[in-house]
């Protein structure tokens, strides 16, 4: 989480620097009276780097996917509740039903 966030911030900073470089390049072109045909090579490389960093951040920062299948490892209930001493397994239905004559399985 922390590392991904830092990488994302770094990517955004590189993006800002690339934007600033492009603005400067436009200013240079204006002085030399040339037309803008495409951003310079170092800006393209910076953008690519920033994009990769941001993909990393976008995939790692939000957290992990949780499995949705009820039979997957993490969703299986393996621990018993803590208040086992207070659980009641005998209740009046056992007595009343046996009086009537129905037998309950134990």
């Amino acid at each position: 989480m922390g590392l991904g966030f830092a990488v994302g911030v770094l990517g955004v900073l590189i993006l800002g620097h690339a934007a600033y470089s492009t603005i400067q390049y436009r200013g240079l072109l204006k002085i030399m009276e040339e037309e803008f045909s495409g951003p310079p090579m170092n800006v393209v490389l910076e953008l690519l780097l920033a994009f990769l960093f941001c993909i990393w951040a976008a995939l790692s920062v939000p957290g992990k996917f949780l499995p949705i299948n009820p039979d997957s490892e993490e969703n299986r209930i393996v621990s018993l509740p803590d208040n086992l001493d207070f659980m009641i397994f005998n209740h009046r239905a056992k007595v009343s039903l046996s009086e009537i004559g129905l037998k309950l399985k134990h």
């Binding site: 993006l15 953008l47 994009f51 976008a58 939000p62 996917f65």
Partner: peptide
């Protein structure tokens, strides 16, 4: 929620990159 988070962030970054590339 994770999917929406990733997609929104990536579309913002993609927008900035597309803008800088002109």
């Amino acid at each position: 929620k994770i999917i929406y988070y990733s997609r929104t962030f990536m579309s913002i970054i993609g927008g900035v990159v597309a803008g800088i590339l002109g």
